[in-house]
């Protein structure tokens, strides 16, 4: 299959454009997404192509424009809402948790909310505590929401297109450090289903489970471990909800060890859920306790050196695997 090199931002832009061309009821809302093209340029030039009806700049009113999305979705349109930073979702949690997630269920299946909320999270840019969080676990805990957290341009495009075609609300969390990351994206129609993880590196000694920016860190760690004669398998979950449980279990059955790597803080993070899954479904295969590498349980500090020491680093992953095999 022929491919092109695109950045994550370009790949997402293509996904939006293609879905807007495919279905005229797909429309965009968010802060500074029109003329300005979004702070990370994901909606660049879409206003020019589709006009102000379908590419709508909103006031800084996350609760109201997400709620407007819920109402628009219930009346037959497909809103793709951009929330500038995942941290800002906190001011609109009623609309996400009590409204969007529950409408279909509460109405006995009469309504559905085919809406995508795109946002971005993660640290690494010195944005400090209210602009650097990894909050995917909050949403994955709520029945009725799907949660997608892509790590590369091809997946970003294919998963966003699938999310837009889904008949239920999806929280699509991009990573601010990955927008300029380049990678091959297949030509033509490219869809990636939700709930299907990806073995991005095959190995035999340990399974490293990760997503978003931590996939790159984990791959780097795997390369280092190879120099020490340790063969690590790396899984990119791609979506947290639905979760590709069988991929994780099959891999651990083969490698007998697992380390979960996430940028979310450690306590009650999704790593705990994956650990529970492994002990429930693959207990007899385990040769070592499942370990977690995660962000320290503190708000993200501003100082760049402190921030780096707070977020998981490649050396932390390498260290965790060594301790497991040692």
């Amino acid at each position: 299959m022929s491919t092109r090199e695109l950045t994550v931002a370009q790949a997402l832009n293509e996904a939006l454009r293609e879905e807007m061309l495919r279905n005229e009821r797909v429309f965009l809302m968010g802060e500074d997404i029109g003329e300005y093209g979004g702070i990370f340029k994901v909606t660049k030039d879409l206003l020019k192509e589709f006009g102000p009806q379908r590419v709508r700049d909103t006031p800084i009113s996350e609760a109201a424009f997400i709620g407007t999305g819920v109402g628009a979705a219930m009346t037959g349109w497909i809103p793709v809402v951009e929330v500038m930073w995942v941290d800002f979702m906190a001011v609109a949690m009623d609309q996400i948790i009590n409204q969007a997630a529950k409408m279909k269920y509460m109405s006995g299946g009469q309504t559905s909310v085919p809406m995508v909320i795109r946002t971005q999270g993660g640290g690494g840019r010195g944005n400090a505590a209210q602009h650097s969080q990894s909050l995917e676990t909050l949403f994955a805990h709520i029945p009725g929401l799907s949660v997608v957290v892509p790590s590369n341009p091809a997946d970003a495009k294919g998963l966003l297109k699938s999310a837009i075609r889904r008949n239920s609300p999806t929280i699509f969390i991009e990573n601010k450090m990955l927008y300029t990351k380049r990678g091959p994206v297949p030509d033509g129609e490219h869809l990636v289903p939700l709930g299907v993880g990806d073995v991005v590196r095959a190995g035999t000694d340990v399974t490293l489970i990760s997503l978003s920016r931590m996939v790159d860190f984990t791959l780097e760690a795997a390369a280092e471990l190879e120099n020490e004669g340790i063969s690590a398998e790396v899984i990119d979950l791609r979506s947290l909800s639905p979760l590709d449980e069988s991929l994780v279990v099959r891999s651990v059955e083969k490698t007998n060890r697992a380390v979960v790597v996430h940028e979310a803080t450690r306590l009650f993070g999704w790593g705990g859920e994956v650990c529970a899954l492994i002990q429930e479904k693959a207990f007899d295969y385990l040769d070592a306790p499942v370990l977690r590498v995660a962000t320290k349980d503190v708000p993200i500090p501003y100082n760049r050196a402190l921030e780096k020491q707070t977020l998981p680093q490649v050396s932390d992953i390498v260290q965790a695997v060594r301790s497991q095999l040692g």
Binding site: G71, Q95, N98, Q99, M103, Q110, T111
Partner: peptide
């Protein structure tokens, strides 16, 4: 909720449904 008669939904949050009507007005 009864879509047949245009009832998009009653809501347990006092102002929770108002923005849904904004959405319905927008699509109209």
């Amino acid at each position: 909720c009864d879509l047949e008669t245009g009832i998009l939904g009653a809501n347990g949050i006092v102002a929770g449904g108002i923005s849904h009507s904004v959405g319905a007005a927008l699509t109209a």
